[in-house]
Design a protein around this nucleic acid. Structure first.
Lengths: 214, 214, 214, 214
DNA sequence: CATGAATGAGTTTTCATTCAT
DNA sequence: AATGAATGAAAACTCATTCAT
């Protein structure tokens, strides 16, 4: 039966091949940076060949771009998971913060890719249409929570949703992105599972303390 | 005068050559990453030749290491500038936070180097003796301020100096390190001079709100 | 015919390329030593490029190793040529000695490579599996001849096959390996064809005189 | 007193410096070959500097030549040590053979230099006047012994002194020069002190067996 | 769609030698 | 007679990409 649906078969294989290449490439780019990653190495770790890689993605840069876009696309999922509209503003904000925290922790490759892309001044990301509409979803939930909080009189009214997002992101990103130099200098692993809960609560406290101050 | 002391002259020239190479190399490594930086390019932007670069630093990695060590050494200067012992704890903490903020803003190359070094899992930094004693100075002032604040009853007593330092650093580093992807997505330049004061105050507020909460 | 079997064709081309590189490299390494040989020069004398050389052999050392292994492998052929079992011991020993003599004379590159490898304290050869089982074949025939000679009472019984092999080898190797300094000092070319027969007989006589002495 | 004879002083220092450089250079050239030896390395292992090396020997080749000439000059000493005229021919030949054997064993660096020079087809040695008159002394004693032996009727009369010298040299040189590949293949160290006497006697026996055969 | 072989331009590194003092 | 710094040419090696089949 399978052999009677060659085109679908082929397509499914093609998708599988593409996905495999992207998986491997994500790991390699995240591990060694854009320049540091080796096309040969990526191909070798794949069940296909280098030729396929060029067939599907055109060039090293094309492959990197595809990796980057897929990584950002995966991130959008966060917002859809969130359902905090029914919670009171403070609880909702705490939960969103913690969800963001969890999300960063479970996507270290993505954070490394972002670091790498920043080293390259986001020249690839900027050219990509993948980020269109990435800002909205990321902020909508937060904006709504802050709104409710302000209306309810529990949140200060001089704060910007994007700044709160920046505060949360900076902590979450830093914890993963700067893990190695931090541990080299301060002998403390910010990703030590034993301290996870501590950091998770610390961040939420910091955010709420600021929003509810005075 | 100087020209009458030949041996010093020679030494000074060598130091000047070394320093010039390090200046250029810092820029190039910060700009393009370790792998992305080109020894040829570094040499070309120098008044000496590629050969000298190997004469002084042995290899590309040796040069990168020297750049990294010098960059971290320059950071130690911060702590010596700080003199907040005479201020009341809250004012002192605010000032230390702002000084740290300023310091990061004025050393973008250093922050890029740190990002790059994290991509490499701090393998170079870890091997270097340059980071010995880097932790202490960075935390001593903060520890003392927190102590005073706790004694005076104005600061909570369940906070770790290193965590406060992490909170401050994460914001300062993120603002510079993730500038480009942030701006690509949210269309807001975190380094826009017009928003500088805003962020500077925001961070200090956040830190103080948390320390003085309840 | 061959052109109708593409995969074999490809393989054969690759083998041909490999073999060509090895041929040229053997000459160059034998001529100038390991350090003295130039990768660029080897490549230039090839119908391919330097890149291919690295593609197949990984590094200059890898290429040298391949050259060395192939050279030693070629030597094993000697033992298979020898068929002296039907001769009486003395005639057999004389013939084996002369065959060894001939073999060395016709493989000057091999002897040079061995000299070179000794300068490097056999560090490459020692790491190579190519020499496994090289000792056996080289000695089996000789051992058998000596045995027969002893049994027949024509050879002394206090001689070691390996020592006889050493005696023969030293003369044959020296004649080629030290040709140049010898000729510079004594004005006599040990490889002069006119003296070939003389040396060939001399060696066999020396070996037999010792084996049959008393 | 010493300081009152500056020119002699200087000369003596100069000689000492020259000698030290030659000592180090001999080791380095013998260890790594002509191309493999590094001028920097030689200078570094010296108590003087690279400049001195060029001052005294002009170039790497000049230094190598000086090393080679000194090494050959040292060899000439052998013949002066020998005093076998009072011994009967057979004993004299045995003793000369053993002396030659001992001499080679105690000059491994010289033998390595000879191998190296042969790799370079004796191009340096040939240009050097150092070898003039090297042949004579080396053969005079042997020639005289053979003469006496022939006259006495104990030695065959169809042997050439130079061929006997070649027979002796080949064994002695091979034992040192090919030590490493031999041991790699046959697992027997030809320089093992425990086998020294054995080889020493073997060679003398072989030489005498041939000379006295029939 | 697949595959090993091939390529050219570039990248790091090395080395004997010389210069300024 | 001495020294650290400097140099240019060459050597080893790498990489993204394409070709032939």
């Amino acid at each position: 039966m399978a052999s009677s649906v060659p085109s679908q078969e082929r397509t499914r294989d093609a998708d599988r091949t593409r996905a495999e290449i992207l998986d491997v490439a994500t790991r390699e780019f995240a591990d060694h940076g854009y320049t540091g990653a080796r096309v040969d190495e990526i191909a070798a770790k794949t069940s296909t060949t280098k030729r396929m890689l060029y067939y599907y993605f055109g060039s090293k840069e094309g492959l990197y771009l595809a990796v980057l876009e897929r990584a950002y696309a995966g991130i959008r999922a966060l917002e859809q998971e969130v359902d905090v509209e029914h919670l009171p503003p403070e609880a909702a904000l705490r939960q969103l913060t913690e969800l963001t925290f969890d999300h960063h922790e479970s996507h270290p490759d993505f954070i490394r890719l972002v670091s790498i892309e920043n080293i390259h001044r986001a020249e690839h990301l900027r050219k990509s249409p993948a980020l269109d509409g990435l800002a909205g979803p990321a902020l909508d939930v937060l904006t709504s929570i802050l709104e409710r909080g302000r209306t309810a009189g529990v949140f200060r009214d001089d704060v910007d949703a994007l700044d709160v997002h920046m505060l949360i992101s900076s902590f979450c990103v830093f914890r993963t992105a700067n893990r190695h130099t931090w541990s080299a200098i301060f002998r403390r692993d910010m990703l030590d599972p034993a301290r996870r809960e501590h950091y998770r609560k610390l961040l939420a406290d910091v955010v709420l303390d600021h929003l509810t101050a005075r």
